[in-house]
Design a protein around this nucleic acid. Structure first.
Length: 826
DNA sequence: AGCACGCCGACT
DNA sequence: GTCGGCGTGCTC
């Protein structure tokens, strides 16, 4: 009987998406379990892999089996539950298992094989060769194996020499899987007992003053202390301390240290607040489910300012009291210091925070805090759903409708769906919170009873929802107002300036000007690789492609007709800022968009400034719409409310309604009442009109009706298959085949392609059509859309066809990407 | 994915 | 004759 590990190797392709068997050598037995990260020999190289199973026997003959090379972590990074979740994900979103597993590991643990080169036993080189190698041989013969990548960087002209000697066997190569990053260690002094220190003082040479000082300091404060800090404390250098260690009087060891990104911050302690009756009523069924340990899902539909966060906090409290852990997902954009503070204040050091602004190292340390049981609550963006807890009791998804929960790269998972599955595996409770639930979630609650629906229709402390006025910009134009601000908005702004209150302005766009257009001939500048409008960047005076990074200089005349009337179109936050300064001299504006918030900590800096009322207006794109809570904001203005309505995406209406409702919710959250003014060219549109009465139900009812008619989610489901290649005819023919084969398979199963008969299972394949991004990085893109409803396993059909056509696709050099339940149609 | 094995053109 | 081009196939 042999101990065998089944390993998923880190090669993300369809052919290798299965386990490979390896012998577990004696020296590693006891270290290998499900979820262990290992280094394995695979087809002549060394790769990282994850153990997904253990067996007493192999599936292949013994002779073909190789032993595991190494175990990469002392603590297995993935639990068997996470491995199981990965298997589920790979089926659900049709991705290789290794991709799903990789998504669960912090970036620091994405190991790569490094090649090391060293001289073979007894290898000889002539003097001539040594001279020719220009120091390369000398470096190699020092003894330490050297990194191949480093050698090639150092001696780029001697790559062929290296290769020749590797081939003739005088040099050998060895591979090792290395993490991108290790834990941070600090050289730490461990003082000996007082007795020893006293003896040391006696035995030191008379002139060793500094060393005596160090010993005196340690005698006084016998806690372990970092070498660097100790040196500073007695104003000397680390070498003094090291000589003490050499004499054996003290002990210096490397100690791992956490990079706590919030180390220098004090969070005031916050105690649970007195709940309003509505909050208490909402909390009750959640607590019941926690008590019963039943795998329940709730939709907490609470208007903006209704106090959802306090409900989360108290549910988490209850969860932790029962010895279980909690995960809180927040959209990346709303993961503001304000939000973090609320959790840190309530739960202190038991909170781990995971978001993209952390460095790789900081993220890794927060991750380890969870894995090693030092944190019980994880707050973070999408990927925090994989927090390596072992007994989860509660998962909260705040703003569950947010698109950022869907990952747009493989694995194209939706964190909301992962949460529900992970909660099932743990017997945990899920709370989906939102003021504007996604139509999918709402419809499932109303028609299916899961999630269970909980409503909080009022703001706390009887504060009213802000009044909303819609301004028809067409009328403004008729009356001769060509300005960016309607008279109503300008007046309201003036009023706020007079009263020293604050305003949030939302512009539904980014950049100074979105595209360049010639007024004479209609020419627009587009990327030669991607067929995407180029964006004008004011700082660098050039035009850039947001997809591939292509850049060219700002044109002075039209490249097509040579007219000088080429000008910048569209409105960006910079332009609005200028208009504000002109209309309201002396106005203090904070502009927040991708350009002003890329720097680490800048986001926080701006918001603090605004909170301290050092500005009158907070102007920005989507990022000013979410989760912000400022007492003196009494006016919210929306410029170009309908900009996003024109996008070719069936969710455009839903997104617009959600965005407008969210931003409206920033006004009047405290003592002072709020007001919202929305400027639009399409005031009758449901998405805009419904915001006026804060009429979520009115909006969903109408929108759901449309969705049902068209068979779109939540009444049908979609799978987008995108093919890309340099040649259009190739794409068309393979795309056609894809569509045909899926249709044939569905027909063979007796699935109708007729969507008109209500309730009946149906499937149709749309396309292939040129994808909305028709060309990307010199490759054309075509897509097929599988639309289906009812009891149809369309993912399985698609994966079968994908497998059958695998050969044709590979030989043709096509790239295929599958998006199950796509969120973005662009 | 990458590396080895294998079968045809332009060089020492 | 050989070095090396990259097409196909496999990796426990």
């Amino acid at each position: 009987m042999t101990a065998v590990a089944r390993v998923i190797v880190d090669v993300p392709s369809r052919e290798t998406d299965r386990t490979f068997d390896y012998l577990i050598p004696d020296r590693l037995s006891g270290w290998v379990e499900i979820g262990t990260r290992v280094a394995v020999p695979f087809g002549g190289r060394t790769l990282q892999g994850i153990v997904t199973g253990l067996g007493a026997d192999a599936e292949v003959e013994l002779a073909r089996m190789k032993p595991l090379e190494d175990v990469l972590d002392a603590i297995t990074p993935l639990s068997s539950e996470l491995v199981q979740l990965g298997v589920w994900m790979s089926k659900r979103w049709l991705c290789p298992l290794t991709i799903a597993l990789q998504a669960m590991l912090p970036a620091a643990l994405k190991g790569r094989a490094e090649k090391y080169v060293f001289p073979a036993e007894g290898a000889e080189w002539s003097d001539e060769e040594t001279a020719q190698s220009g120091g390369l041989l000398h470096a190699l013969r020092k003894g330490q194996p050297l990194k191949l990548s480093g050698l090639l960087q150092h001696y780029p002209e001697h790559g062929d020499l290296l290769r020749r000697w590797l081939l003739d066997g005088r040099l050998e190569e060895r591979q090792k899987v290395e993490d991108r990053l290790s834990v941070k260690t600090v050289q730490t002094v461990f003082p000996s007992d007082a007795e020893t220190l006293k003896r040391a003082v006696a035995e030191l040479p008379a002139r060793a003053h500094k060393q005596r000082e160090v010993l005196a300091y340690l005698a006084d404060q016998p806690e372990p202390i970092g070498v660097q800090r100790l040196a500073e404390a007695v104003s000397t250098t680390p070498s003094t301390i090291r000589s003490l260690a050499e004499r054996g009087w003290i002990d210096i060891r490397a100690v791992t240290e956490d990079r706590d990104p919030y180390a220098d911050r004090d969070f005031p302690v916050s105690l649970p607040m007195q709940l309003t009756p509505a909050q208490a009523a909402a909390l009750l069924p959640i607590n019941d489910a926690l008590e019963q340990r039943s795998n329940e899902v709730f939709l907490l539909h609470g208007v903006t300012g209704s106090g959802k966060t306090e409900v989360y906090l108290q549910a988490i409290q209850r969860c932790m009291e029962s010895g279980r852990e909690a995960i809180v997902l927040v959209p990346e954009i709303a993961l503001t210091p304000q939000m973090v503070e609320r959790f840190k204040s309530r739960f202190g050091a038991r909170v781990a925070v995971l978001h993209s602004r952390l460095s790789q190292g900081e993220r890794y340390d927060e991750w380890r805090k969870i894995r090693e049981g030092r944190a019980q609550v994880a707050v973070g963006a999408r990927s925090a759903i994989f927090a390596p807890f072992s007994k989860i009791g509660l998962i909260v998804i705040d703003e569950e409708h947010e698109t950022s929960y869907k990952q747009e790269e493989s694995p194209k998972y939706h964190a909301r769906d992962v949460a529900v599955e992970r909660a099932r595996l743990h017997g945990a409770v899920v709370v989906l919170g939102s003021a504007t639930p996604s139509l999918e979630t709402y419809q499932a609650a109303v028609d299916g009873g899961r999630p269970k629906y909980i409503a909080m229709p009022e703001r706390v402390a009887d504060r009213p929802l802000p009044g909303v006025r819609i301004v028809d910009m067409r009328e403004e134009l008729k009356l001769g107002n060509r300005a960016m601000f309607s008279r109503e908005l300008a007046e309201a702004l003036r009023d706020r300036l007079d009263r020293n209150e604050q305003t949030v302005l939302l512009l539904n766009r980014r950049g100074y000007a979105t595209f360049v257009m010639c007024r004479s001939c209609g020419y627009t500048a587009a990327c030669p690789h991607c067929e995407i409008s180029l964006t004008y960047h004011r700082g660098s005076h050039n035009l850039r492609c947001h997809y591939c990074g292509y850049a060219e200089a700002e044109p002075k005349v039209c490249p097509s007709c040579e007219s000088p009337h080429i000008r910048f179109f569209g409105t960006g936050t910079q332009k609005v800022e200028e208009a504000l300064a002109e209309a309201f001299p002396g106005i203090r504006v904070i502009r927040m968009d991708v350009d002003t918030t890329t720097e680490k900590g800048s986001h926080e800096k701006w918001l603090t400034q605004f909170r301290e009322r050092r500005a009158d207006v907070l102007l920005g794109t989507q990022m000013v719409a979410k989760g912000l809570d400022f007492p003196y904001v009494t006016l919210v203005g929306v410029l170009a409310a309908d900009a996003a309505l024109r996008l070719p995406d069936f969710r455009a209406s839903e997104r617009t309604f959600q965005l407008l409702t969210q931003v409206a919710g920033r006004a009047g959250r405290h003592e002072l009442p709020g007001e919202v003014i929305i400027q639009t060219y399409d005031p009758e549109h449901v998405s805009i009109d419904s915001v006026r009465g804060h009429d979520y139900k009115g909006f969903v009812t109408k929108e759901l009706h449309v969705r049902r008619q068209l068979g779109y989610p939540p009444y049908g489901r979609l799978i987008a298959i995108t093919l890309s290649h340099e040649s259009v005819p190739m794409l068309l023919s393979v795309g056609e085949q894809f569509a045909m084969r899926i249709r044939e398979k569905a027909a063979a199963l007796g699935i109708s392609s007729d969507f008109t008969e209500p309730g009946r299972a149906a499937l149709e394949v749309l396309g292939p059509v040129s994808s909305p991004i028709a060309r990307l990085k010199d490759r054309y893109r075509f897509q097929c859309m599988v639309k289906y409803r009812g009891d149809v396993d369309a993912s399985f059909l698609a994966s079968q066809v994908l497998q059958e056509m695998g050969d044709a696709v590979k030989r043709g050099g096509l790239q295929v990407s599958v998006d199950v339940d796509p969120q973005m149609m662009l």
